[in-house]
Amino acid sequence: MTFDFWETLFMDTPELDRRRDELRCQGLQENQSTPWLANIWKKGEQVWTLEQIRYIVNHATKNRPIPLTDPEVLMRLEESYWSPSLTAPATLNADAPKVLQRLSERGLKIGLICNTGRGPGHALRELMRREGVLDYFDATIFSDEVGYGKPDTRIFLTTAKMLGLQPRDILHVGDNIENDVRGAQRAGMKTLLFDYEVPSGFRGQPS
């Protein structure tokens, strides 16, 4: 059995989302000493973590590339970017621990399939550890770590391989019709739509 992360295992709010954006802007400004980064981020342009940082910095300097080659500077920038995932974290679904415990007691293999966006896999995995649910999972697959995300069938097939199961033997649970249901079905999995009304105010409202 596999689960989606956002709005399935962990629940988010527009307020927390905005707070993380504020913290990212603040951290990037402090570490790169440019006042334009906050305005650039508000455009909502998204790519993967270090690429996002380079993209934002280049836009902030009117597309004149700044060589970000100092490992220490890159480390500080990256930490400023992902740390809000832990300082203003999403909330664990209150029913998740007991559901995961019951599945584990039945001997079922459990996987997580997550599109990361602005919160990289290592930060979200740490959030799961802090909430006491990481050890229930036999595989945790994050899009920034494998290079592709839902609804790409490869992320579902990669998860099945890591679990040692055939896709037809896996039930995937998630809240997004396109990413979780149709994507998993195209990979050959069974699906269960987590019928959750996403709070209004998010930039990307799931179907």
Rank of each mutant, 00 (worst) to 15 (best):
T2E: 11
D4P: 13
F5C: 12
F5S: 06
W6I: 06
T8Q: 02
M11K: 12
M11C: 02
T13E: 03
T13L: 04
P14W: 02
P14N: 02
E15Q: 14
R18A: 14
R18E: 14
R18V: 07
R20C: 03
R20Q: 11
L23F: 04
R24W: 02
G27Q: 05
G27V: 06
E30D: 11
Q32R: 06
Q32H: 14
T34G: 02
T34V: 02
W36A: 11
A38N: 05
W41Y: 00
K42A: 13
G44S: 01
Q46D: 08
V47R: 12
V47P: 04
W48T: 15
T49H: 08
E51T: 06
E51Y: 04
E51P: 00
N58S: 08
H59Q: 14
A60H: 01
T61C: 04
T61M: 03
I66T: 11
L68T: 01
L68Y: 03
L68D: 05
D70A: 11
P71H: 08
P71C: 04
V73S: 03
M75F: 02
L77K: 03
L77D: 05
E79D: 11
E79I: 01
Y81Q: 01
W82E: 03
W82D: 06
S83K: 12
S85L: 11
T87G: 02
T87S: 13
P89Q: 07
T91L: 08
L92W: 04
N93D: 12
N93Q: 04
N93T: 00
D95P: 00
A96L: 06
L100V: 06
L100Y: 07
Q101Y: 12
Q101H: 10
E105A: 14
R106C: 05
L108Y: 14
K109P: 07
R118F: 00
P120F: 05
G121Y: 03
A123K: 09
L124T: 07
R125D: 13
L127K: 12
R130Y: 10
G132K: 09
G132H: 07
V133E: 12
V133D: 11
V133A: 13
L134T: 00
L134Y: 07
D135E: 13
A139E: 08
F142S: 10
S143G: 01
S143C: 03
D144F: 04
D144L: 10
V146P: 11
G147R: 03
K150Y: 07
D152G: 01
R154Y: 06
A160C: 14
A160R: 12
M162E: 13
M162V: 08
M162I: 06
M162R: 15
L163D: 11
L165R: 15
P167I: 06
P167H: 05
D169N: 15
I170L: 10
L171S: 06
H172G: 07
N176S: 10
I177H: 10
N179E: 10
D180E: 02
D180F: 03
V181W: 01
V181F: 01
R182G: 00
R182A: 01
G183K: 02
G183S: 04
A184M: 07
Q185V: 03
A187S: 05
A187Y: 06
M189E: 06
M189N: 05
K190W: 02
K190Y: 02
K190E: 08
F194D: 12
D195R: 13
Y196M: 05
Y196F: 15
Y196P: 04
V198R: 08
P199D: 09
S200I: 09
R203L: 08
G204T: 09
S207G: 15
